[in-house]
């Protein structure tokens, strides 16, 4: 995608598919939720903490489980008019800290109050349980005003093992930007040009260009064209198949020092048996057909040997 400021951007999703182990204290609470029960834990000072933690705020280990609720009292609240994707309810709702009956600390959850006018600090609320429960804080769908509650009792749970693990996925969506210098580099690719950036101080040509010369501390802003051929500085042979592999193994990945550049770029070499790959080999870019060119390094399909005599090691030594 292209914005009017000339900077390339693209959607990007970061996901972690973690599971979390609960430990005995949190596991007992989540097991209780799955079974339709609310439990706190007694602290060394004799108070009841909900939701339970392993240690109290003074650092003392907490002890026995204590039944609490199911009803409770709102101690503070906030009204959401436009729920987010991650929120527990899709209609406008309140977040609330709720002190369950028998507890000394308040827990966070959502209250499905219908309207902001129905919410107040001190409101009595009671849980609305999900029918299908797995051992999660979201087994409580939300709380509802107590006077609206017909049946706050959860369905009896079948005997099942204690909760020790639960899925804890993270999903974050970004629109990443390439920045000015990388955008210039990527855009040139669609014209079969390779553009580097020269540091005015050390005169080194960076590929891709970058806004900051890491040795001189000044912008490496002057753009210069570099050749689409150069010398292999180092290489490796991939022999293990994996999902994103571009070819069936074995194939060769190389660092290529293009003529006119001081830093190598990383790409693939085809057109030789892997065993023939070597440092100093001269190679040339093979571009995709013109109609497939785009602002991406993938505009170069791969590199192929030119057949010219290899470069001396002295020519690449500084770039290893």
């Amino acid at each position: 995608m292209d914005r009017d400021d000339g900077v390339l951007e693209a959607p990007y999703r970061l996901e972690y598919t973690y599971q979390r182990s609960t430990g005995p204290v949190i596991g007992r609470f989540l097991t209780g939720l799955r079974d339709g029960q609310l439990e706190g834990v007694r602290t060394a000072a004799g108070t009841v903490m909900v939701p339970p933690l392993e240690y109290d705020t003074q650092g003392a280990a907490t002890g026995e489980a204590v039944k609490v609720g199911p009803a409770g009292t709102v101690t503070t609240w906030a009204w959401v008019t436009e729920p987010r994707r991650e929120h527990p309810l899709t209609q406008p709702f309140a977040w609330a800290l709720i002190k369950l009956d028998g507890a000394d600390t308040a827990m966070l959850h959502a209250v499905d109050a219908g309207s902001i006018a129905a919410m107040r600090t001190g409101l009595r609320v009671t849980p609305r349980w999900r029918a299908a429960r797995t051992g999660s804080i979201r087994d409580l769908e939300c709380f509802i005003p107590a006077d609206a509650a017909s049946a706050a009792v959860a369905d009896a749970a079948a005997a099942a093992p204690s909760v020790t693990l639960f899925p804890s996925p993270v999903r974050l969506d970004y629109t990443v930007t390439a920045g000015h210098h990388l955008s210039v580099y990527l855009r040139a690719m669609q014209d079969k040009r390779i553009v580097g950036g020269r540091c005015p101080s050390c005169t080194k040509v960076y590929l891709p260009p970058r806004g900051a010369c890491p040795t001189c501390g000044v912008p490496a802003a002057e753009t210069v064209d570099v050749a689409d051929h150069g010398v292999v500085t180092t290489f490796c042979i991939i022999r293990i198949p994996f999902d994103a592999a571009p070819f069936p193994p074995p194939y060769v990945a190389v660092a290529v020092l293009l003529e006119g550049a001081d830093l190598p770029i990383y790409h693939l070499v085809r057109g030789i048996e892997p065993e023939q790959a070597r440092m100093g080999m001269r190679v040339k870019a093979v571009w995709v057909p013109d109609e497939q060119l785009g602002p991406t390094l993938a505009s170069i399909k791969w590199f192929e040997p030119t057949g010219e005599p290899d470069a001396d090691r002295a020519q690449i030594e500084r770039h290893l």
Binding site: V7, G179, G211
Partner: peptide, 11 residues
């Protein structure tokens, strides 16, 4: 600030 990457913000 889409034009600057992190190094360019810092420099």
């Amino acid at each position: 600030d889409a034009a600057r990457d992190e190094a360019e913000l810092v420099q």
